[in-house]
Simulated scan of single mutants.
Amino acid sequence: MIQYGKQNISENDIQAVIDVLKSSHLTQGQAIEKFEQDLTKTCQSQYARVFSNATSALHCACLALDIQKNDSVWTSPISFVASANCALYCGAKIDFVDVDHLTGNICATALTEKLIAAKKINKLPKVLIVVHLAGHCCDMEAIYKLSKAYGFSIVEDASHAIGGTYKGKLIGSCQYSDITIFSFHPVKIITSGEGGAALTNSKSLATKLSLIRSHGVTQDPNLLTTKSEGPWYYQQILLGYNYRMTDIQAALGASQLEKLDEFVSQRNKLANRYHSLLRGSMFHPLTPYNDCLSAYHLYIVQNSYWCKNDKLRIFTQMREAGIQVHVHYIPIHLQPYYQNLGFKQGDFPNAERYYQESMTLPLHPALSEHQQNFIVKTLLELSEPGNNKTVHKTNKVTKK
């Protein structure tokens, strides 16, 4: 099976993990500090805090921004459910901003209209969680200007986007946001097995993130409410969680980070090759924002001509041919849990149109040109009008 995404592990990565396994600390050791320092240097932020996964990082970001019961948080309906769930964990009310169906990202025009309407009824969001789908950055400058005009904070869910840039600045620099979140799941740009990170330029937010990820406990003399009783002394000063990353994960993540530029360059090379192979067909890729260098976590194509049955048939036959196509994502507001909260089909029509038209093709640094040729050849043959072919893993196409 040609996987839609996969990790790329080198001997250096393996040795980095072995070194930690042979050390005195498997968790809460120096590997954590090194990985965080490497992230700040790479992404040009002031602070980085690593977590057990990106979901825990998103949850802590909401808590650090003081999201409480009945606060309002807005996000994109085109994302994995964690982008919205993190606000619900805090007791907040969640809502969505429709996307530009050609980019899959939050539409600045739709956001403006929703903010104007919300201000009239005094229901503005406290936080907006933007999602950089597939590694393509949102129009952050426009969104940032709206945040200043309407008084909300911004979290970038950049789970797909480490290594990408916006207007020449690296994603993670937090130039247009309060906190940026990365994911290090095995199918992402770099991996730590599982893991995530929150980057910020705010010292106070970094302090809160550190506390929340580790039970709300500290030994920092500047944070203690009374004088320390000795080297063993600690205090719990807020309610936190155990969202810590291990040193084993951090060592792998730091080693992978050294290859970030190489990985992003190869992903862009493969994406450009897909562009060329699909040019003139009925498929067109998601359109990155003009001032964005995408990290290309995913290569998503859209077809505005196929019906639901066509998509299902082609998806199934691509899988039968050994090509692990995928769909990113089912709109969050259409999930049963969110429909029970009151959302319904038709609420965000661009997101729903995007979902019907989109399919993810395999993309990862180890993808070969031969595999890429086979993927596109199979997709185009199966998509010919009136076609009902089965493509076998032998790469031969036969009529039923």
Rank of each mutant, 00 (worst) to 15 (best):
A61N: 06
N268W: 05
A295M: 13
G230E: 11
R313Y: 11
A251M: 09
V325R: 00
K188C: 11
I330P: 01
A92K: 10
I179C: 01
C137E: 12
K123Q: 15
L382K: 03
I162N: 03
I2P: 03
G196W: 08
M359V: 12
K41Q: 13
K188Q: 13
Q345G: 04
T218Y: 09
Y296K: 04
Q7L: 11
N387E: 14
M318A: 07
I190Y: 02
K227I: 14
R244Q: 14
K119D: 09
T75M: 03
A54Q: 08
C60Q: 06
T390L: 11
S228K: 09
Q317C: 09
L58H: 00
L382S: 00
Q372V: 05
L239P: 02
G195V: 06
M282F: 10
G172R: 06
Q236A: 10
F348N: 01
I212R: 01
Q15E: 12
L270Q: 07
L361W: 04
I189E: 02
I248F: 01
T112E: 15
H392G: 12
A31K: 05
L199S: 00
N70Q: 14
T378K: 00
C107W: 03
K259I: 06
D291Y: 08
N388W: 11
V217G: 05
P285A: 12
T287S: 11
N222P: 02
L26R: 10
M245P: 00
Y89L: 15
L21E: 05
N387I: 12
D139N: 13
E113C: 08
K399I: 14
Y338A: 06
R273D: 12
D247S: 07
L238H: 05
K41R: 09
H297M: 13
N272T: 13
A84M: 06
F343M: 03
A254N: 14
D71Y: 01
H59R: 13
D347K: 02
L58I: 02
H392C: 14
V127M: 06
